[in-house]
Amino acid sequence: MFQLFEEFKDKEILSYYKDNLEKVEPEFAYTLQEYKDGLLLFELMQQKIWNQSSKDTLGLKNFFEANLNSYKTKELKKIKGEVMNDYQLFLEKNWIADLKRKSTIEVNKKQLKKLVKYYKKK
Rank of each mutant, 00 (worst) to 15 (best):
K121L: 10
Q46D: 15
K100C: 03
K114G: 04
E43A: 13
S70A: 06
K72V: 15
Y118L: 09
N67S: 01
G81R: 11
S54F: 06
Q3M: 13
D10E: 12
F63A: 03
K72R: 14
N94D: 13
L41W: 02
E92M: 13
Y71E: 00
E7Q: 12
K109Q: 14
K113L: 12
F28R: 07
K109Y: 03
N62I: 05
K9F: 14
I49P: 00
W50S: 14
N51A: 04
Q46L: 08
F2W: 04
G59S: 00
K117G: 03
N67K: 07
D86I: 10
E65R: 15
S103F: 15
Q3G: 06
K18M: 11
R101W: 05
E82K: 13
S70P: 00
K9V: 07
A97L: 11
F64W: 01
E25W: 05
K109G: 01
M45R: 11
E25T: 04
L112H: 10
Q88V: 03
L89I: 08
K114E: 15
K120H: 04
E34S: 09
Q47T: 14
E7T: 15
L44F: 08
Y16Q: 10
K117W: 04
L14K: 11
Y118F: 10
T104D: 09
T57V: 10
T31I: 09
K11E: 06
T57M: 07
K121Q: 09
K61F: 08
N67C: 00
S53Q: 01
N20I: 00
L115T: 13
I79E: 02
Y71H: 00
P26G: 04
K74E: 10
T104N: 14
Q52V: 07
Q33C: 07
Q46H: 14
K78S: 12
L41S: 06
L21Q: 14
R101G: 03
K122H: 15
F64S: 00
Q3K: 15
L91V: 01
A66Y: 01
D10H: 10
K110L: 10
Q88N: 14
E6I: 15
Q111S: 11
I49G: 02
V107A: 02
K77D: 12
T73G: 08
A66D: 15
A29Y: 03
L68Y: 07
N108R: 05
K100Q: 06
E65P: 09
D98Q: 12
L91D: 01
N51I: 10
Y30E: 15
N69A: 09
Q47R: 11
Q46M: 04
K102C: 15
L115I: 07
E92T: 08
E34H: 09
E75H: 13
W95N: 04
L39G: 05
K55N: 07
Y119T: 05
D37Q: 08
K55F: 07
K74H: 12
L76C: 03
K36W: 09
K78P: 02
Q88I: 03
G59R: 00
K9W: 15
F28G: 04
T73R: 03
N62W: 02
V24P: 01
K55I: 05
L32M: 13
T31R: 11
V83W: 00
N85C: 05
Y17M: 13
L4T: 08
K93D: 13
G81H: 08
L76I: 01
L58H: 06
D37V: 09
K113F: 08
L4G: 08
L76W: 02
N62S: 14
M45P: 00
F2G: 14
I105G: 01
L115P: 04
S70W: 02
L21T: 06
F64P: 00
